[in-house]
Amino acid sequence: MQNYLAEVINKAFELLSKYPLCDSCLGRCFARLSYAHTNEERGKAIKLTLLLSLDYSLKEHKIQDSNQVKEIMFNMGQISYGIFSLYFGDDFQNRSCYICNNRIQEIKRKFYQKALSLLREKGYKTFVLGVSLPRHMRDIEQNFIVENGLIYYESLKNEIKREVGKLLTGEESKPDIDNPEVEIIYDIEYDTILERKRTKHYLFFYNRLVRGIPLSSWYAKGGLSLEKLLNTQINSPYSEPSDVRIVDDYPLITEVDLNLNQINGFYLKKSGRVSGTELDVIYNVKPSIRVYRVTVNAKEELRDCVKVFDTICDIFIEAKDFNELKQKLAELRGEILGIDLISTTGKSNLLANNYIRP
């Protein structure tokens, strides 16, 4: 047990030998230890423990270089003033925190006041918080973490969001990571908050049994598109060129809750509202293999083809995406009459199985 304690105190000694750190910024270096305490409490406890150890070492004449002790006490701040004055007189230096410049409590207070004012003015019931750090603070913190190998560190942004969120909870509003009405971002550099409304998202799965109608109006270039048909913006984690019919279930994200099953050759299967981590998963899931049916008017006999009529036949080709399919078709002798996406394998299948309602 003594060895474990020594490791924490030795690390704190090492840090305070090099940097002035306020209670919160020192405590944040060990944030993943001693659950249910604030970083300010951790930092103060560590400093007090270290001061006890330094005082003992001074009294027992175990410290040879008193200048190093003075530096550490300067970097601890006012908590060490009493012991410092006892040994070294009144020549005490007040130093600003290397990470937050002694501003962390002020930052939390301003963020809380501005966020509370916004919530009361607009009447939002649920929210999520964000913090925008000035570039120099981001660089200082990142270098500090890496150079000192701080595996138990919590980011400055995370502490601010967590502590302000606690203060705001119960003020007729509450945090909701998955379905917030608004995201409130505090820009520290300009001392202002940004209000960003969270858009609702709905998940559908679609089949496209027509050719020539793309999903996006941007690709349609003034022509017909599914976006134009539905009169709403849509997004899809993956799709196929507009001339490829899609028989498998492909995901589609909309900002409007649609109440229809089919439109102009598109067939829609509704899943429901999705947000937060669900959206992240959906946008990062892709098929590992796609199976295409290519209808060909062959100029010569093709291996493994299914004859449809006379020289017209179907061949089935596996590819990771449409670009790979084109490479495989480059040397095919014959006229390609049509391409259909038949099925996929990979995590995309799990997505459809989990979200399509019976």
Rank of each mutant, 00 (worst) to 15 (best):
M1K: 07
Q2N: 09
N3H: 03
Y4A: 09
L5K: 15
I9N: 11
F13I: 02
F13Y: 15
L15A: 01
P20F: 08
S24Y: 06
R32S: 10
S34E: 06
A36S: 12
R42Y: 07
R42G: 02
K44N: 13
K44I: 06
L52Q: 10
S53Q: 14
L58R: 05
K59F: 07
K62P: 06
K70H: 12
M73C: 05
F74T: 11
M76A: 07
Q78Y: 09
I79T: 12
S85A: 10
Y87F: 08
F88D: 03
G89F: 05
D90V: 04
D91H: 12
Q93G: 05
C100W: 00
C100R: 02
E106S: 15
K110H: 11
S117K: 02
E121I: 00
T126C: 05
G130I: 02
S132V: 05
P134T: 00
N148S: 04
Y152E: 00
S155I: 02
K161N: 13
G165E: 00
L167G: 03
L167V: 00
T169D: 02
E172K: 13
K174F: 09
P175E: 12
P180Q: 06
E181V: 08
Y186L: 09
Y186V: 04
D187P: 03
D191R: 15
E195R: 15
E195K: 15
R198P: 03
H201G: 02
L203C: 01
N207R: 14
L209M: 14
G212Q: 09
P214K: 00
L215N: 02
S216M: 10
A220I: 07
K221G: 11
K221H: 15
S225Q: 01
L226Q: 01
E227P: 00
L229E: 12
L230F: 08
N231V: 08
S236N: 02
R245S: 07
R245N: 08
Y250V: 15
I253C: 09
T254Y: 06
N261L: 10
N264D: 15
N264C: 13
G265F: 08
F266D: 01
F266K: 07
S271G: 03
S271M: 09
Y283Q: 09
K286F: 04
S288I: 12
S288P: 07
I289E: 14
V294A: 01
T295W: 04
T295E: 05
N297E: 14
E301K: 15
D310K: 03
K320M: 10
R333G: 05
D340M: 00
S343I: 01
T345P: 03
K347R: 12
S348I: 11
I356A: 06
